[in-house]
Design a protein around this nucleic acid. Structure first.
Lengths: 205, 205
DNA sequence: GAGTACGTTGACTGGTGGGTCAACACTCGC
DNA sequence: GCGAGTGTTGACCCACCAGTCAACGTACTC
C-alpha cells in the first residue's frame, strides 16, 4: 500500500527501527541479517534500504536517538539545585528506568555501541564521552563545595559511577542479577549508596 | 619445517595464539579474517585449523587461559588473612597490572568475551560468574565481621566493584582516560577509595 | 481517467571469508 | 635409505548476506 501521507512514512520508519531493536537484542548486530529485520517488521527486504542507507545506519539511528535523550536528562538534572548525591541518584534512576521500560533497546545500546570498542563505540566516542564529562562535572562541583572529598579525580569518579550502573544492567541482561520489579528501585539506592557512601562502615555515624 | 618435537608444536600453537591477540585487538573478532591471524603469525592459513577446530576456539582458548589465571589469583588472595579493603585492592591491582603488561589480551577478553552478551559472553557465563561470586564472598565476609556495613547486598557490591574496574580499563582502551605509567597505580587506589570509602566527605574523620 | 510520483516488492548479484583437503616437507625409527 | 607419521601449505569450495534495481501498486492531481 503506497501513500503520499508523510505521517505514514514516519511510522514505517519507526516500525523498522522497532523491529531492529528486537532482532539486534535477540541475535546481536553481527549475527542477524537485514532480512531478519524486514521479516520482524513485516516489510519487504528492500524497504529497509529505502529508509536507511545501510545496516549500520539503523543501529546508528537507534543509538543517537536514545543517547540524545539520556544526555538531555543529565543536563536537565545538572541544572537543578540539588546535592550531588541527589543528582547522581536522578541519573541512575533515569538509566535504570530506561532499562525497565525498554530493556531490548538498552541492551542493544550497551552491548553493540557503548561497549563495542572496535566498531560503533569508536564511531560514537564523542557522544559517549559527553556523558562521562557531564557526570565528571557534577563530581567536580561537589568537590569544590565540600560535599565530596577529593581523594579521587572527577573523571575517574565518573567512570566508576557509570561503570557500576552499566555493570548492573549487564547483570540483568546476562540474568546474573535478579531483575524483579522491586530490584530495579533497590538498584538505584544500591548504586548511590555504594559510590557515594562507600562499602565500609563509618567510624562514627 | 616439520618436526616430531612436541615442544615445537606447542610453540607453533602459542605463536598463533599470540598473533590472534594482536589481530583481535586491532580489528575485532568479527571484523578480522582467519587469514589475518595466519599472516600475523607468519604461518599458512590451514595451520590455524590444524591447531584449532575453528576461529571461535582460538578466542575461547585465549579467554579460558587468562580467566583461569585471574580466578586463581582471586582465590589465592581470598585465602590470605587480610582486611576486605586489602583483598579488593589486591584484586584491582592484579587486573590493572594484567592490563599494564598485556593490554591487547585484556582488551580482547573484555571487549569480545566479558561484555559480549550475545556471543562469547553467554558461552562463558559460568566462568565469568565465578569471579563475581568470589568477590561477593569477600564482601559478605566483611559484612559479617563488621568491616563493611550491609546497606548493599554482596552480589550487588561485587558488580559495582568489578564494573568500576572494567570501566576504567575501557577508558584506557578507548583513550578516554590517561594511561601513563603512573596512572595505573593511581587507578588502583582510586578504585578502592571510591568503592570502599565512597565519594562523600565523612561527617567525622 | 490519464499522468505522475512515490512507497513497496523480492529476485538477483557480487564479494567475502570460514572451513576443507590433497599434496608436499621434514623427521625419525629401524 | 625406506616408510610411516606428523607438520605445513594454500588453492579451492560454498554458504551466506549486504546492497541493487527494475517493476509494480496505490494515491493524489488536474
Amino acid at each position: 500500500m503506497a501513500t503520499r501521507n508523510p505521517q505514514q512514512a514516519v511510522e514505517r520508519r519507526r516500525q523498522i527501527l522497532d523491529a531492529a531493536v528486537h532482532v539486534f537484542a535477540r541475535q546481536g548486530f553481527h549475527t542477524c541479517r537485514v532480512s531478519d529485520i524486514a521479516d520482524e517488521a513485516g516489510v519487504a527486504y528492500g524497504l529497509v534500504y529505502h529508509y536507511f542507507r545501510s545496516k549500520d545506519e539503523v543501529l546508528d539511528t537507534l543509538f543517537l536517538e536514545r543517547w540524545g535523550v539520556l544526555l538531555d536528562a543529565i543536563r536537565e538534572t545538572d541544572r537543578e539545585q540539588l546535592p550531588a548525591r541527589e543528582k547522581l541518584r536522578a541519573i541512575a534512576s533515569f538509566i535504570v528506568d530506561s532499562y525497565r521500560h525498554e530493556p531490548d533497546l538498552m541492551k542493544v545500546i550497551i552491548v553493540e555501541v557503548t561497549r563495542a570498542a572496535n566498531s560503533f563505540g569508536r564511531a560514537h566516542l564523542a557522544e559517549i564521552r559527553e556523558a562521562y564529562d557531564l557526570i565528571g562535572g557534577i563530581v567536580a562541583a561537589a568537590q569544590r563545595s565540600g560535599e565530596f572529598r577529593d581523594a579521587v579525580t572527577p573523571a575517574f569518579a565518573a567512570m566508576a559511577f557509570y561503570g557500576a550502573i552499566e555493570q548492573v544492567l549487564t547483570g540483568w541482561i546476562f540474568d546474573v542479577l535478579p531483575g524483579a520489579p522491586e530490584d530495579f528501585d533497590q538498584a538505584k539506592t544500591f548504586i548511590v549508596e555504594t559510590i557515594c557512601g562507600g562499602l565500609e562502615r563509618r567510624a562514627v555515624r
